[in-house]
Amino acid sequence: MATSVLLACGLNEQKLPGFVHISEESNVDGSFLISCILGQRLRISNAGTLLVCLQHHYQHYFNAGMRLGYNTNIFQGKTLGVIDVLSDMAGQGLASKWLRHPDGQNLTEQLMEDIRSQVETNYASRNSYTVLIDNLSILFNLGATKLQVQQFCQDLAALSKERDNLTVITKLSNSDIYQLTDNNVAKLGQVRIQVLRLKSGVFREVDGKLLIERVLEEGKFACEETRKEVLYKVNDRNVKVFTPGEIGVKV
């Protein structure tokens, strides 16, 4: 269902790089990547996953998973942990801890504390652990500043370095105004996936372009890195990828 897109991104392996960042350009939606990665992690036996829902609530990921061929409810509470910020706020209103800021902590500090406690509880009993955060730009809407988001990402990067087999995957919609934050988050990791719109406009058979940059080795003065470009199309029950030039106008 989603193997080809994960293969193109190099995220189909059991062991993932420590920090992966997905940059989403204005006017494109890269949420399908989160659902694809989530499905792949859940299929690996004894691999723990923590899903931090900021853009969509948990039910969305459940529905998306059912379409892609996996049931998140089976794994929830076992290998899958969920921090559902949106549902908490919808259920508890202004009494929600995400809006009250108890203990004088700001939103990002509180979120980091929750992530750390989930990791500490579950990491030891799992072969590997993945933290998926969708989507950092919602933190801005909830009142976090750019510096707080940057500090939050620095903490996440430090967390991924503290433990082996722990991967942090973040997504950020840069909306053409958070480009600098996007660059600062991307530099923390080894893999950056940019979800870009087609420069030529809208096309029925292709939704957009993925630009995958992976640092293979860091030298003293330059990095050895690979760049790959693929086109993608999100269908109802799968995601297809094409190499540029493969699809053309048929006369």
């Binding site: 530099k187 860091e218 030298g219 003293k220 990095c223």
Partner: peptide, 9 residues
């Protein structure tokens, strides 16, 4: 954009 290399550089 080579900031990741700064200390090594």
């Amino acid at each position: 954009n080579r900031e990741r290399l700064a200390p090594k550089f």
